[in-house]
């Protein structure tokens, strides 16, 4: 998986780069408009993570450039602006998704993975991880061929973990993913614990390995066996 991060804020760019660089992916970065434009003109990416406010230019022009040249690289816009104008313009121009700053890296990764998956699998939209097989259209999970029933939140959380496999996902990131940012669950992470307990129980009972581990009381990690 090849990712390009276009972001002028050094701190954020470095963090994203570090988070996305791993065994199965390559992450490149661009700090300003011209170098970004040069990179997208030269190379192809599975997904471009794009900040809208760039020195010397508007990120939306990069989306326009990609579309005008018939490129089908995935585009995820990240911006501190969440005015609906930007969102609509970006999505109208052909961006795949929009994430408002600030966000958790795990959320970013799960959105990027979704975009990459959508582009990679044409037709059959299945996600396979060892013995776990997920039909993304039907939202159905099978372990070793046996259907396992998950609730909406458990299913969403399982996908989130698989997208961030091998990473520690913090409880706040999980809370934000499950409940959104408009619901304040007020530091009450008991709910997360019970959802995770259910997922582990269901997976293990269906014969899967126990992939989810608690990580130092801060979060959880989906281990890559």
């Amino acid at each position: 998986m090849k990712i390009l991060v276009i972001e002028d804020e050094t701190g954020l760019r470095d963090s994203i780069e570090a988070y996305f660089t791993g065994s199965d992916s390559i992450c490149e970065v661009a700090a300003d408009f011209s170098s970004a434009l040069a990179k997208v003109s030269l190379y192809r990416y599975d997904c471009v993570i794009l900040d809208l406010t760039l020195p010397q230019g508007n990120g939306l022009d990069i989306v326009r450039h990609l579309k005008e040249n018939g490129r089908d690289d995935g585009v995820l816009i990240i911006s501190a602006k969440n005015s609906l104008d930007d969102r609509l313009t970006g999505l109208d121009l052909g961006a795949d998704d929009y994430l408002t700053k600030p966000f958790h890296l795990s959320e970013l990764r799960s959105r990027v993975m979704a975009i990459v998956r959508r582009r990679a699998f044409n037709g059959s939209n299945n996600l396979k991880f060892n013995e776990i097989d997920i039909d993304l259209d039907a939202k159905a999970v099978k372990v070793n061929g046996t259907a396992v029933k998950f609730t909406r939140k458990e299913y969403s959380l399982l996908l989130y973990f698989i997208a961030n496999k091998g990473k520690v996902v913090s409880k706040s990131a999980i809370a934000e993913h499950l409940w959104g940012d408009s619901i304040d669950i007020a530091d009450n992470f008991d709910f997360i614990y019970s959802h995770i307990k259910n997922i582990r129980k269901k997976l293990v009972e269906a014969g899967a390995k126990d992939y989810i581990q608690a990580a130092y009381g801060m979060g959880y990690k989906f281990i890559v066996a």
């Binding site: 701190g11 954020l12 963090s15 988070y19 958790h104």
Partner: peptide, 15 residues
Amino acid sequence: TPISVINSKLDTLVQ
């Protein structure tokens, strides 16, 4: 922007 930097640094730190 600074909040998102803190957030991302935290996410990186816990790894």
